[in-house]
């Protein structure tokens, strides 16, 4: 069992949990993820490691409530425990000195971009960060991101905080201003990552994205997480989750993420009914 040491609402639908998992904290690196299961009827839920504290032996996850499992996870309180917590999984992000790096986080993707921005910063890169959300209430990690960035931009869809617009608007301005950029790292909804890839492709800037296809085991055993990258099929859980954005078939990823739409709906309704019955 893994204890929830801290639980916070970052917004109405985005929650933070710090979980005691000393062995994983010892090994975790930026870009890796965990797979958790709430109880023995639960599914295996992949979550990026949003932070780790080796001294305290904790792993932080930040998640958005989208369906049954994340809704149930959000009901858990500090001091309660979850049944399974496996990690660290996946390849760590390729952290080295690139020069000038732009880190882009959209929506809940701000959480996983944070340890990457921090690591890039610590590796001596100049870091320009752009984070975006639908509105001010959905924004989080502003201070954290600011503290690891040389330049820091905020955008919201409705302009309630920072610039009004999309993260790609800022990236576009940067690119057009002729600034020399050596690396772009983008994590967020698939359409956002695809838009970033399209923008940087023409400029020939190395661009990484972190992919989140549907997973089961997370150890390379099922192949459910396969994504088309260039000419080949990759297993995101072991070959990734980071990939060269210019090689990724984003349309296929979007399709594959929809595989269980109907079942996800059924699962949620079933759970709500069970809750009502007590």
């Amino acid at each position: 069992m893994y204890r929830i040491i801290e639980r916070k609402d970052l917004s109405s639908t985005i929650k933070l949990m710090r979980i005691a998992a000393p062995e994983i904290a010892k090994k975790a690196q930026a870009g890796q993820f965990v797979i958790l299961r709430i109880h023995d009827h639960g599914e295996r839920i992949p979550m990026t490691i949003a932070d780790f504290d080796r001294a305290q032996g904790t792993i932080t996850i930040v998640f958005q409530v989208v369906g049954k499992s994340t809704e149930e996870l959000a009901t858990l309180k500090e001091g309660e425990s979850i049944l399974n917590f496996l990690g660290p999984l996946g390849q760590p992000s390729e952290i080295k000195k690139y020069g000038k790096a732009v880190c882009i986080g959209g929506g809940v993707g701000v959480a996983p971009i944070y340890p990457i921005a921090r690591a890039l910063h610590e590796a001596g890169n100049q870091v320009i960060s752009i984070i975006g959300a639908r509105n001010e209430k959905m924004l989080f990690y502003e201070e954290e991101m600011n503290s690891v960035s040389d330049h820091f931009h905020i955008v919201t869809d409705d302009g309630s905080r920072g610039n009004q617009g999309l993260v790609t608007d800022i990236l576009c301005d940067l690119l057009e201003s002729g600034e020399q950029i050596d690396l772009v790292f983008a994590i967020g909804p698939v359409p956002m990552m695809r838009a970033v890839a399209e923008l940087t492709r023409g400029h020939g800037i190395k661009t990484f994205v972190s992919l989140n296809p549907i997973m089961v085991d997370g150890t390379g055993m099922c192949g459910g997480c396969r994504v088309s990258v260039g000419e080949t099929s990759k297993f995101a859980c072991v070959d990734g989750p980071d990939f060269d954005a210019h090689q990724v078939d984003f349309d296929q990823l979007l399709e594959r993420q929809k595989m269980y739409c109907q079942e996800e709906q059924d699962s949620k309704e079933h759970w709500h009914q069970c809750k009502c019955r007590g």
Binding site: H41, E43, S69, V216, M221, M259, E263, E264, S267
Partner: peptide, 25 residues
């Protein structure tokens, strides 16, 4: 893959969905 199909069914008990959370199609 057969591994995914069987893992969902056996390990994750998708044949008892939605009592168990993991679906299969």
């Amino acid at each position: 893959s057969a591994n995914e199909f069987l893992t969902r069914t056996n390990l994750m008990k998708a044949y008892q969905f939605p009592e168990y959370d993991t679906p299969i199609k």
